[in-house]
């Protein structure tokens, strides 16, 4: 729970101090990218904070390298 609260506070700061000023630019592309990244990373962080297992890219890379070089 503390993880989620800390993340939400941080994301609120990012929203107010960076995302909203960035949206004042006319670039639609920037708005789409920022919104998608913001929503996706927030979702992942909330799920992680709730205890869901989020797969990391590290173990598959380790297994791949070990299978090639072992």
């Amino acid at each position: 729970m503390p993880y989620i609260i800390i993340c939400l506070v941080f994301y609120l700061f990012v929203l107010l101090l960076d995302m909203i000023p960035a949206f004042k630019e006319k670039s639609i592309r920037l708005k789409i990218i920022y919104t998608v990244v913001f929503a996706a990373t927030l979702s992942v962080n909330v799920l992680y904070g709730l205890g869901f297992h989020i797969p990391s890219p590290a173990p598959p890379i380790v297994h791949l390298i070990q299978s090639i070089f072992s």
Partner: peptide, 24 residues
């Protein structure tokens, strides 16, 4: 993504790195 100013990508890039750093 053909965004003119790379500084606009600072926090989006940072959010991706933050999330990956947490779960890696």
């Amino acid at each position: 993504f053909n965004v003119e100013n790379y500084k606009s990508m600072a926090f989006p890039a940072g959010l991706i790195m933050l999330t990956l750093a947490s779960i890696i």
